[in-house]
Design a protein around this nucleic acid. Structure first.
Lengths: 122, 122
DNA sequence: TTGACGTGATACCCTTTGGCATCATATCAA
DNA sequence: TTGATATGATGCCAAAGGGTATCACGTCAA
């Protein structure tokens, strides 16, 4: 059972945060280093980092008085998995996946309070 | 040059909208049909459909007095492409992609007003 | 010890977002 | 025509989001 997608999708919904992920994909950075790349205060960047952390997309380790932010790209896997369900609509060379897809059809997302699960499809 | 990712990521950031996409992946639906699946007013669902449309994820065609919503899964492609940049961190069997990835390294996202492009990395 | 430095935390602001209620408009069916 | 149906559009509201400014606190280096 995949973890809740919502915090991760939420984290990805902001361009600043997406850019931070790309930056951290190149090297670990302190908050100050990340902040230096943007036209906003350190506090604002810090907020973004918290959201990214909530989404599991980064981890933070303390090193002296610094906080090193590290990309945790594995947290993107549930997102790509969710998206892969739709690949059938543009990708034609799908074969073995069909079965897995079909069985997964009826299970829609149940990751937040407002998911009522009313889907009476099928 | 991929279209702006922001409207698409934005559209995906809400669980109701993600569920709508899954539903439309199974069959085209009118607004009323979509609304029937959720514990919210038609007006609220309509707003979600507008956001999905803004993100290019659905198309709408008029049929009599009805509005048929159709999934446009191709609009997810830029998202998966963006995410694929990170696959190197959990996927090991990457070979030919390495070069393409390297050349793409320096080009971060430029899809909104608040992307300052200050990235002095490299 | 004493600052400077890196960060956490909080309060406040304005805008966006997700929801509702309501009314207007167009179409289908008698 | 007349009424039910399907939708569009608008205004309102509370909450969330993205920023700022500011202060407190631990850490490093003299």
């Amino acid at each position: 059972m995949p973890p809740n997608l919502q915090p991760t999708f939420r984290a990805l919904s902001d361009p600043t945060r997406r850019n931070i992920l790309r930056m951290l994909g190149q090297r670990d950075m302190t908050i100050a280093e990340v902040s230096a790349q943007f036209d906003m205060t350190r506090a604002a960047v810090k907020k973004h980092l918290v959201v990214l952390s909530d989404g599991g997309l980064i981890t933070v380790r303390t090193e002296g008085r610094e906080r090193i932010n590290t990309l945790n790209a594995q947290a993107l896997k549930p997102v790509t998995d969710w998206l892969s369900w739709f690949e059938r609509f543009w990708d034609t060379h799908l074969d073995a996946l069909k079965d897995a897809i079909e069985t997964e059809d009826t299970e829609l997302e149940k990751d937040t309070k407002d998911d009522t699960g009313h889907h009476t499809n099928d």
